[in-house]
């Protein structure tokens, strides 16, 4: 009995330390990314905001009486009244319609057409996009990324859907390393 208690005690210590090392209580379910490799080596990927069901929060631009705020009654803080932009947080889906993350969109930061997106996919990382709106479409370039998206450069296009949703397409590449690094690689 005493021996089994001692063994159990040591096993308890070892088990707790092993759990603390591997942190299995933080699972990351990674949905397979639906990327398409283009001829130039670029990676094309399409994301979707399905419609009003994917609107987590929405603050319409000041003076926009037709768009309903989400949650109902949400409004810009009075001190932000000079800011005529609009902001929203959406659920983000892959091309197959599976929810894979969240997206933040802010329009009208510096000019009425200026637009910025942050696409956050917990299992993969985050990518920041900046551009401008042209009609129902928005186009621009990738400005930053982290984790799986770190160091990527490229362009994007977002198209508004009639039901309040969005289709966001990104085309990214890994930039060529500087010539000095390439030369070092060739020597090794």
């Amino acid at each position: 009995m005493r021996t089994s208690i001692i063994i159990g005690f040591l096993a308890g210590i070892a088990g707790a330390l092993a759990l603390a090392y591997t942190a299995p209580f933080l699972p990351h379910d990674r949905v397979r990314s639906e990327t398409e490799v283009r001829n130039n080596g670029g990676r094309f990927e399409q994301f979707e905001v399905a419609g009003s069901a994917d609107v987590v929060s929405l603050l319409p631009a000041g003076g926009d009486a037709q768009t309903e705020a989400v949650p109902s009654g949400a409004r810009w803080y009075p001190d932000l009244a000079p800011f005529s932009g609009e902001a929203a947080v959406y659920r983000l889906r892959n091309a197959s319609g599976v929810v894979i993350g969240v997206a933040s969109r802010v329009k009208g930061v510096e000019s009425p057409d200026d637009v910025q997106w942050v696409l956050h996919i917990p299992a993969r990382g985050t990518i920041a996009l900046k551009g401008a709106g042209i009609g129902d479409a928005e186009i621009g370039s990738v400005v930053a990324g982290e984790r799986e998206f770190a160091g990527l450069v490229g362009e994007w296009q977002a198209t508004a859907k009639p039901n309040g949703g969005w289709r966001i397409e990104t085309l990214v590449i890994v930039p060529e390393p500087p010539a000095s690094l390439q030369a070092a690689g060739d020597r090794s």
Partner: peptide, 17 residues
């Protein structure tokens, strides 16, 4: 008795860690 002893030891061991 061995199983009970193991459990009696395991829980305080985990808590101690």
């Amino acid at each position: 008795r061995i199983i009970i002893g193991f459990i009696l030891g395991f829980i305080p061991g985990a808590l101690a860690a």
